[in-house]
Design a protein around this nucleic acid. Sequence first.
DNA 1: GAAGCGTGGTC
DNA 2: TGACCAAGCTT
Length: 356
Amino acid sequence: MSQFSKDLIAWYQLNKRSFPWREQINVYHTWICEVMSQQTTLAVVLPRFKEFINELPDLHSLANCSDEKLRKLWVGLGYYARARNLRNGAQYILQNFDNKFPSCKDEWLKVPGCGPYTASIISSICFNEPVACVDGNVVRVVSRILGMNKDVWEKIGQEKISCYVNECIPKNYPGCFNQAMMDLGATVCKKQNPICQECPIQKYCYSFKNNIVSLCPPNKPRKDFQTENIFALLLRRNKKLEYSIILRNQGFLAKTKGFPLLCSKEGYSKEKILAVANKLNLKTTCLEKTFKHSITHHKITGHTFVIDCNEDDYKVKSLLKHFALPEKNEWFALAHIKQNISSSLDLKVLKTLSSE
DNA sequence: GAAGCGTGGTC
DNA sequence: TGACCAAGCTT
């Protein structure tokens, strides 16, 4: 093992963060926590991980869990395909791996929702496979070690970084090494205000020695935000006591339950929606109160339409059909809506209603 | 290769 | 208040 790897691992043994999934090696726990942590801050993950494991403690319970249970366990976590992939993955593993877990990176790569990072970290931690993983932390740490102030986000730079960690990874302690790199990136080699004076691998760091830490890595080029208007339809019946939610089939938040949504991106506008509702003779108002919401690369202003349907189911179906929305809908009393939605966008819609 | 996909925390 | 970002994957 290189002195660099020895120094890093020695630091990790003394300074590693304690997490529920680090108490003992458990493949199921490692898989769940890694997927839950994709593009998500650990402060958010921690309580939700415990809840998930309590409710779905093993492969079988996950593979067989209901849509409802899965939805509740992922409320507010975002990137909802991850939850669906976890259940799909559990079913895939049970069907293809004879009641065991995949035991190498190439097998994990076939599990839904597991890409190069997740397959590598699970295989290195749980099966001692000497495969390096490259997440956002590792990109930052290595780009500083190598003094990369350009090309980091291009293919050439990513290959260089990947090549470096693959050469460093010790055959006997791949899991420790991978976690050490990530912990170092998260606690010492931070994006903002790195604590170089406490860094165990300072003497290997080109950017530290040459005083260019602040230039490495360069900022990732950001895509411009699109500005959109989104229109939530609150279909109301039964003396205005019950509201309708659907399983959204396309656009933002597809495959999650919530209010029917129409987006300016699809050509919808306040006027067009009002015109359709009027044509069906449905009493419709657009609330004054709007809300803001962000979804990756989109800045969204939300508008709430309240549509009184009385008991005219035919008109409801016509309306939904006109907008190419799923015609299968469920009605809930306002007080129960909250327990049947996942996205914080839907909660913001509800807030516009209650503030009227 | 690039676009699409969510959210809560942080400064 | 708002911009930026975090243990990426899929198409």
